[in-house]
Write a protein that binds this DNA or RNA. Structure first.
Length: 282
DNA sequence: GACCAGGAAGAGT
DNA sequence: ACTCTTCATGGT
């Protein structure tokens, strides 16, 4: 077991961070331990006030994955633009955006469309179990998230048992478009927000919202502001009363909401989005 | 059984 | 560039 002691003003809440809906492969036990698998490493971690106790990866990995190197007091101050977001920040203080592996994140959000979090989690777990490399940890078998070639080499029909529904062909098609996940990641990382967004939209099953999630959670484009049905409702209720909720979200409405969020919350509006989402009811 | 879920693609206009 | 329809699955 390793221990990492947080600085007194180093704001971090492990529970908020892992249960807010940004990640799909972490589980909490009754006695407060979190288990997850990231980049092929099984991680076991818990937080007791300022003390993080963990095993599976070095401290440098933990620091990077949980963005502990970022001064979130400054970020929270910058997005704290009104009473509502202020209340969200206070309620979920210490929530940090993590740095997800981009390929896994991409497939996760392809699998997320028109779905809910428990179902998404089951799909990702199913993909890993079917195609991922097994990893032994505490006498149990875990599965790394598979590379694109591992998914595509089984053929389109190999995916059927993962029960992705109509997303099956999207996952297969996108896996074929990304021969090497490391090269792909490097390419996207060099791009500006706009270019990266267009690039991601070129993948099967990745639209505007999924692209924004991938940019925010995996590429640290903190000005991305994903708009899903929850965020749309929250924005209508608290910021944009003229929005209508009865019709499907159009590309124009999406762009308008995103533009408003950037102006209102600033360059870290993606962090604001996650604090708003964390406070959703339902 | 209707309705909803961290939407997107394709066809038609 | 817009609108409408369809898409497969699981939960409530």
């Amino acid at each position: 077991m390793s221990v990492l002691t947080l600085h007194p003003d180093q704001l971090f809440n492990l529970d908020e961070t892992l249960s807010c809906g940004q990640v799909f492969r972490w589980d909490r036990t009754m006695d407060g331990w979190w288990y997850g698998i990231v980049g092929g490493h099984v991680i076991k971690i818990r937080q007791d006030k300022n003390r993080l106790t963990f095993t599976g990866v070095p401290a440098s990995f933990i620091r990077r994955y949980f963005s502990l190197d970022m001064n979130i007091a400054e970020i929270l101050a910058s997005i704290d633009s009104d009473p509502f977001i202020h209340a969200c920040i206070r309620r979920h203080r210490g929530l940090r955006l993590v740095r997800q592996p981009p390929w896994e994140c991409t497939v996760s959000y392809i699998c997320s469309t028109n779905s809910n979090i428990p179902t998404i989690r089951r799909r990702i777990a199913s993909l890993a179990e079917r195609y991922g490399r097994p990893v032994a940890f505490e006498g149990k078998r875990w599965y790394a998230f598979p590379e694109p070639s591992s998914i595509s080499c089984g053929g389109h029909d190999g995916l059927t048992e993962c029960r992705l529904g109509y997303r099956q062909s999207y996952v297969f098609g996108t896996s074929c478009l990304v021969p090497d996940e490391k090269i792909w990641e490097k390419t996207v990382r060099k791009l500006s927000y706009d270019c990266a967004h267009k690039e991601l939209m070129g993948l099967h099953g990745v639209g505007s919202k999924a692209a924004d999630c991938i940019l925010l959670f995996a590429f640290q484009k903190y000005d991305a502001f994903p708009v899903d049905v929850w965020i749309r409702r929250i924005m209508q209720e608290h910021y944009l009363p003229d929005l209508t909720l009865d019709a499907p979200l159009t590309p124009r409405e999406y762009a308008m909401i995103r533009r408003f969020a950037r102006e209102h919350f600033g360059e870290y509006c993606g962090w604001a989005q996650e604090y708003l989402y964390a406070g959703r009811v339902g």
